[in-house]
Design a protein around this nucleic acid. Structure first.
Lengths: 137, 137
DNA sequence: GAGAGGAGGACTGAATTTGTCCTGCTTAAT
DNA sequence: ATTAAGCAGGACAAATTCAGTCCTCCTCTC
């Protein structure tokens, strides 16, 4: 269906939250979940992925929580997608060649490959910084 | 996971098959399924979608089958995607606003919307004709 | 009128996504 | 030292979607 996952949406919301309302402080998952309006448990998973990718960094223990791990100009939408959904595979044979019956004789692999790159470029061209500019005029 | 459906892959293969090995004649689903190498029943579904969209046209009865419904320069990859997967919705709120908890306060809808349009443009920029050029040098 | 072949609804099984639960670890505060 | 807030992450359950099959009907050629 060529649709982005919910977890990605959660992650993107969380990052913009940290970038705006979370400046200079540590923000708990609970605060974000309450304020934005979705499940704390699930958002927590997204944050863990963002952390592993260095997009967010975490502070443990009481008074713990999350902050951004990099400047907003250094985080692109593609980074968030990669952190949360892993490497994109527009077609199945990108994951497993065996999953395609016609792998050896396939004529579109080249095209689908460049298409995927172009989509990644599209996502990579937007930083959180520029995204925020678009929001608040 | 931002992945294209299998049915779309089937459809794309079928269209290029018709455009190359099926010139000037009517091709049965069985032939395509056998030659390309996947399920006849399922390919049949894809063909039905393509037919409804006018990308393929069908002949019923004995000696029936499919032909292309338009010239290859007038069929884009986006057309095939639309025919088979329906209107694209990068985010859920495009399908149902209620499916998003933060619809009213959402900051990314505008961005996601233009992103979707850009992806559609990408698909719309490739015609079957140009795709075939890329394949056979 | 028999059989090849498309049309399409219904259904099933598999895979993926989404979300919850639980347990453990870290650390500030008391 | 103990407690409780909060992150980390594995395991599991539910829901949704996708993929594929089956069955019936209709159309057309021979």
């Amino acid at each position: 269906m060529l649709q982005v996952s919910r977890k990605f949406e959660y992650g993107l919301h969380a990052v913009t939250y940290l970038a705006t309302k979370g400046q200079g402080r540590v923000v708990t998952v609970k605060e974000m979940a309450d304020d934005i309006g979705f499940s704390q448990e699930f958002l927590s998973k997204a944050m863990q992925s963002l952390k592993r990718a260095g997009i967010a960094s975490s502070v443990q223990g009481v008074k713990g929580g999350y902050t951004l791990g990099r400047e907003t100009v250094e985080i692109t939408v593609a980074d968030i997608a990669l952190a949360i959904e892993g490497k994109p595979h527009l077609v199945r044979c990108g994951v497993k060649a065996e999953s395609c019956e016609v792998f050896s004789s396939c004529h579109h692999r080249g095209y689908m490959g460049t298409l995927q790159l172009k989509i990644q470029d599209l996502l990579g061209a937007t930083t959180i910084y520029s995204l925020l500019q678009q929001i608040a005029p």
